[in-house]
């Protein structure tokens, strides 16, 4: 089952975007990505992505799983699980199978989960595919 902390991301990162660099463009990778710096454009990986609390991402994200504790402006699409930690700020739509939002996290957007249930950030059910 899912691990609910950062442990599963440690030691397996292929790309580490630290706080000393800025990336502009389309970042595509097969391995996991850790962002602690600034990314403008898009981020796509077949593996996991972690957005650190100092990170600023103005990009659409696509990944297998996402762990977010920084700022994201863009849509986030993950195959499995997305977890927003208490310092996360996400402005954009989320699509995932499992969503975990910690108390204190800021999420402004629409959330669609596998199975077709869709919720707005206020918690109102807005759509169903059934």
């Amino acid at each position: 089952m899912f691990k609910s902390n950062e442990e599963e991301f440690k030691g397996m990162e292929d790309t580490v975007i630290g706080s000393s660099i800025k990336i502009e463009g389309d970042l595509v990778s097969n391995g996991s990505i850790i962002v602690e710096g600034e990314v403008i454009g898009s981020v796509k990986t077949a593996s996991n992505v972690r957005i650190g609390d100092r990170a600023k991402v103005i990009a659409n994200l696509e990944a297998k799983e996402a762990l977010i504790s920084g700022k994201v402006e863009g849509n986030v699409t993950v195959q499995d699980k997305i977890e927003l930690l208490e310092t996360a700020e996400v402005s954009g739509d989320i699509q995932a199978r499992t969503v975990i939002i910690a108390a204190g996290a800021i999420f402004n957007g629409k959330c669609t989960m596998a199975g077709g249930r869709q919720f707005s950030s206020e918690g109102n059910k807005v759509e169903s595919e059934e």
């Binding site: 706080s19 000393s20 660099i21 800025k22 990336i23 502009e24 463009g25 389309d26 970042l27 595509v28 454009g41």
Partner: peptide, 12 residues
């Protein structure tokens, strides 16, 4: 690299 550009900050 490929489709993106990396710029280092003064911290680097």
């Amino acid at each position: 690299k490929d489709t993106y550009k990396i710029t280092p900050s003064a911290e680097c």
